[in-house]
Structure formats: structure tokens, C-alpha cells
Nucleic acid binder design. Sequence first.
DNA 1: CCAAAACGTTGACTTAAGTTAAGAAATACA
DNA 2: TGTATTTCTTAACTTAAGTCAACGTTTTGG
Lengths: 189, 189
Amino acid sequence: MEDEIKNYLSRYIPITNELEEELSKIEFIQSYKKGTILLEEGKISNECYFIIKGCIRSFFIKEGEERTTEFYTEEQAVIPSAYGMKVPSEYYVECIEDTIAGVGTPELELEMYQKFPQIESLNRALGEVIMAKYQDTFAEFKMASPEERYLSLLKNRPDLIQRAPQHQIASYLGIKPESLSRIRKRIMK
Amino acid sequence: MEDEIKNYLSRYIPITNELEEELSKIEFIQSYKKGTILLEEGKISNECYFIIKGCIRSFFIKEGEERTTEFYTEEQAVIPSAYGMKVPSEYYVECIEDTIAGVGTPELELEMYQKFPQIESLNRALGEVIMAKYQDTFAEFKMASPEERYLSLLKNRPDLIQRAPQHQIASYLGIKPESLSRIRKRIMK
DNA sequence: CCAAAACGTTGACTTAAGTTAAGAAATACA
DNA sequence: TGTATTTCTTAACTTAAGTCAACGTTTTGG
């Protein structure tokens, strides 16, 4: 079970026996059923996730409508905006498939960082890479029309279009479900 | 000159004499004239900046048009997407005002992190906070109309509207200059 | 297995952004 | 200071997204 996490880390840092043992001790693998709410609006966020199998989305509710802000799939880290802060979350986090994930908490992280400083270095470096990618995604999003955004999603994350319902994809693209339906029709020619 | 950086850091970690001395030794303060290009598309990015005074924007060129992706002002860190990677930058970085900034390089950073591990911890933590904010910004952007985006910018970064030319603001909002002009007219009633 | 709910498509209409073009206003700099 | 260049505004027109409403399709759960 923990193999996926070990495997993932081993691409970036050497896994010593000591680290391996620590990982098997403190990493907490959980299974969640589709529909499980991992974080509710207004609650304090004390968990982050590393997805081994499944799909998680974050969303918020505005004017009675769900607005999907992100989809996370295998090998991605789900770190709620409010994670580790003492402020209530503005977002919901939900499993949209049966999901298996490693669960982290600020306390576990701190313990880990103290024992294995190279894990903190790795997290800093990875964080910078993820930030850079995210900036690129935002830049592309800004400049693209809704149709281009859909085509780009189709190209970059084709699996999502199968895995998530269309109205969630629509709000992820910043458009209404009716518009997405028309875009799809238009594209099919 | 280095006071601004010391001052900024001191909000998060204690500044020891040793650290202070180090800062004054290795921090490299530079002045740039308005219009200076700090990074060109296609070049390797080896510098990041901490703005003491002035304004920097990043942009790229698509279909012959400049698309502004971000504006950075006092106390903000400018870290190009390609910074420290060995790949050519897709973006330009330009001073749109006379600017004074602390300049960092991957080598300086590494040296710093080795001597003062708490700086790396700080950077990891700050990085997470910045990432969380950025996610919120993106989420808000997605769901807002161009007019709402402009109103939000007016509320959250009113100085930018004075400091940057309108066509740069327009592309930052993901719209055409003509549209921004009409939005402004509409708002003024 | 069936009924209810959730989800997706379509149509008619409204609205605002894109496009193109022209000209006014502001700015740069020789 | 005056001219060239850049920036901003306006107008007429096109296009696609939002809105509202209806209806067909799929999924869910008792």
C-alpha cells in the first residue's frame, strides 16, 4: 500500500532504510467511498492527501451553485487552501470516485521534517515546480476562449472528461453546463 | 538598502547577527530603469527578485500580442516559471517602473539554505501560503465576468490601475483593451 | 425494478465581448 | 517644443456565452 508513496518519493530523493521504516509507520493510508466529503466549508482543514487511486475535487458554493476549482487524480497532492491555517475553509473537498489516499497532517509533517530535513527540501522544490506549472495553467486559461479551454483540457487531462460529470467540468472551465454542451456539439462538427 | 529584506524576513524568523551579516554580504541589490527587460523569451532564467521599490510584470507574446500574466510590486517575490530550470523561458519579465530589487540565484539560495536551514523552512511555508492565495485568485477569476474581475482588481490592487497602462491591465484580466475601455465607461455610469 | 432525482441537450432570446477601423489623447524623445 | 509613436476611446457589426424553459436520458436508491 505504502509502495506508491515510497515509489513517488524515490524519484526525487534516496529512500534510506530508516526513512522507509518511518514511512511505513507514520503514513496513514485511507479508503474513501465515492461521495465522501473530506472537508466542509466553514470547517478547519487539518488533513492533506496524496492520491494513490481515485479522484478528488475541490469546490465552493456561490449563489447556490457549485463551482469546481480543481480536480486531483493519481499521484497528485491535495492541499486545501486552508490546510494548517487556523481559519475556516472556504471550500469543500469531495471524493468523486472511490479513493485510496495517503493522509497527512501538520503534526506528521513537522515530525517528518525534523527527522528528515531532505523531505522538507524536497517539498520546497516540488512546491516551486507545482507553483510554476499552476502559473502556466492560469496564464493559458486567461487568454483562452471557453472552447479553447475545453480543447486544452481534452488534450492535457483527457481522463477527467470521462471521470467527472459534465456540469462539474463546465464550472471548472468557468462556463455554464449549457455552454459546454454546445461547445461539444460544435467541436464534433 | 538591505533593510527592507531584513525587515521582511524578521516578520517570520528571528534575525541573528550571523544571519544579518550574511544577508548584507550575499544579498545583491540592483536598480533597473523603467523598460528594462530582466528575462527574455527563449533565455535561461537564473535570477529571481524581491521588489523593494517599483513594479515588474511578466508577459508572453502570442499571435503578435503581449499577454500580461502577472504584476509584482513592493515586497513581492518575482520567481519566473523557468527559474532554476534548465529550460528556456516562455515568458518575458520587464520593469514597468524604475525598480530597486534584491536579486537571487539558485546558487545563492542553495548556499543560504545550507547555512540557515530555517530560511528553507520559511520559504517552504511561505510558498504554501502564496500557492493557497494564488489558488483562491484563480478560482475567483474563473467564476467572475470581465467586469467583476476589473472591480475585484480595483478593490484588491487599486495601485496597479494607476501604475500600469490600461492595455496591460486588459490582457491581465484576459480581455481586449476595447472591452476594458467600455467596462470602465459602464461602471462610471 | 421502478420512481425520483440528477444530468445533459436543445431552442429562443438577451447581453456583452471580439473585431475592425478610425480618430482623439497622452507620452516619449529628438 | 513639436512631431512621432503609443495608448485610449468610440462606433458598427459579429459572435458566442448567459438565461430561462422544456424535455429527453441516465443514475440512484428504496
